[in-house]
Amino acid sequence: MIVHAVMAGLVFGCYFTLVGIGLNLIFGVMRIVNLAHGDFLMLGAFAAFWLYTLLHWHPLFSALAIVIGFGFLGLALYYLFVPRLQAARDAEMLSIILFFGVQQFIEALASIAFGSSERSLPGAILGRGPVRLFGQAMPAAWIFSGAISLLTVALVYVYLYRMRIGILTRAVMVNREEALAAGINVDRISAIAFGIGLGLAGLSGVFAPFMLGSVTPAIGGDINLSAFAVTVLGTLGNPLGTAVGGVIFGISMMLMQTYLSSWANLLPNLLLIGVLLIRPTGLFGRETRRA
């Protein structure tokens, strides 16, 4: 049983990495907390749901469309909000409040448009029957979603470490002022990162019906907490640390559900608080806290 929990935890870890990585990218580049991250994920889930229900699009196909669509939405939102926000004295704090407003807006809009009933997609769309992975049987939909997540995280790695624009992006993460001085078009880099961040949120939404169960317009808040737990575990502002955070989160969630299921929903909260108190800058963070 424990092996199964750990294996399933790894698969979910890949997925939770995907859930957290967009949030972390945006924070890393812009020092802005996208509190509406979970709600963009919810929108992605609904988009996949409707694309399947109405047009019979395979989730993989809608995933592609959603990444592109949400990417452009992110670009638009960036230019609408972020430069103005960053001119303020305490941008990080104000960003929490601003994106909370965005969250309320999205949640309200979604519940007006979709109602509050639960929507789900049958796992069989992604493959039939259980799949055996290292001797452990798991639903095919989990394996499929986990694999796509892993692939996406790998692509994010390639972007950040192998492409010229990704290196510029990391330079902005390291030191925004220095990046400006080095002639980097920080605005453009940030806008693209914001677009990617939202695209990743939308993409993780596509697989939410398979990994997290049915979706309603109200799931955003809870997902936010999980996403924050994952990113803080793996150091806020360090997108690849997210992978470690995701795996720790996934495995501990599966272990909790196996052995202490009635307390499982406490996990993200306790992990978050625990890590923040023990290592406020995350497991891989540098000590940069002010007094």
Binding site: I167, R170, A171, M173, N175, A179, A182
Partner: peptide, 8 residues
């Protein structure tokens, strides 16, 4: 940029 390599 301290967090980046020399080449980067």
């Amino acid at each position: 940029f301290g967090g980046l390599t020399i080449e980067e």
